[in-house]
Design a binder for these strands. Sequence first.
DNA 1: GGGGCACCTGAACAGTTGTTCAATGGGGTG
DNA 2: CACCCCATTGAACAACTGTTCAGGTGCCCC
Lengths: 194, 194
Amino acid sequence: MSDRTTMLNIATDLFWRKGYQATSMRDIQQALDLRPGSLYSRFQSKSELFEQVIVHYAEQILARLEQSALEKDGLEATRQMFIQELLKPEEQRYQRQCLLLNAMAESSKLEDRAAEALDDAMAKMLQGFIALAISLQQQNLLCSVTSVDKIGQWLQIQFVGLRNTAFVSRNDEDIVYFIDKLLIDLQHQWPHNG
Amino acid sequence: MSDRTTMLNIATDLFWRKGYQATSMRDIQQALDLRPGSLYSRFQSKSELFEQVIVHYAEQILARLEQSALEKDGLEATRQMFIQELLKPEEQRYQRQCLLLNAMAESSKLEDRAAEALDDAMAKMLQGFIALAISLQQQNLLCSVTSVDKIGQWLQIQFVGLRNTAFVSRNDEDIVYFIDKLLIDLQHQWPHNG
DNA sequence: GGGGCACCTGAACAGTTGTTCAATGGGGTG
DNA sequence: CACCCCATTGAACAACTGTTCAGGTGCCCC
């Protein structure tokens, strides 16, 4: 019927598209061709299901970032990663937003355990950006006095900011332009008091 | 009892803190010390109330940006604006997030008119950042070949990205550091193909 | 003081939500 | 064939939601 992985994938898709509260257990059951109650034999509650979706999502994005960190040409790999994540085609436009950020906007309705999972996921994503920063610095592409923690955090800031405009904007060329600006700034001067 | 402005302020606060769906009409009525039904003498529906909250919010942030655009020292004004908006004290930490972005994460549950108001509000905010960019360029602080539209959009990207980390991070000094980085990049080189 | 108007009240409605649970059915084992 | 185990079922529950409305209240103007 449906193994656990496809169940998680479909649930991830729905939560990503509509958000946590707007996605009902019945929506998920319908998408999986199950009857009400069946989901509860595999997941204790909606909250626990969402928790696993968050973990699942964070693993994927972390893998994506660590893969980029392995590439030879770090700058080009960074550019490609940004482009691929930000310029999702029209039918997947909802994926231009970040599921974790959307979840944070609804954090007041999350149970404690799901909120913790969300914090962990954010930390894991940051860790991925720091891995990318380490790779860039090892290739001598950056100013070496700035800490990789700062650079990783900065990359995440750029990523988050760009995701929003990429979601709203109707002009993908602009997004590419801002990615190029980002790559210039990445290699440029950083404040001293860090 | 409660004039329309304080009603809007309180509603804005609740929507900002908890989100659209998580805030019930009963929450708002309770915060205003009203009984169920009273709100409907002033607002047709929850959707219309939220619509006005969005307009109200957008006006405030636009005013804030246009005020910064009038200052003599544009760079310092920009810096102060970012600091003031991003480093809200602990008891108002929820204001570090952007109400408009949170609303966009829940856009699947918004009625058409509220969704339009949200689009307008986003456009208005962008217009504010462009006004700021115009002011900076008139003060000869920036490279003059880059269009003010691009610079305004870029400022908004930085603002959105920083808001998220400012909300999550427990270290305000980092935020100031990234604001300084932003001011360096603002005056630095921009890609040519714009 | 009387009339009208705007507001407020609070019970009630219909719809949706997450969740439960007794009944069901099918597949494997003796 | 008879037995048992376990996932599935789908009806039902309680809580919550936005919203309505007939009746009450208080205020202002004539």
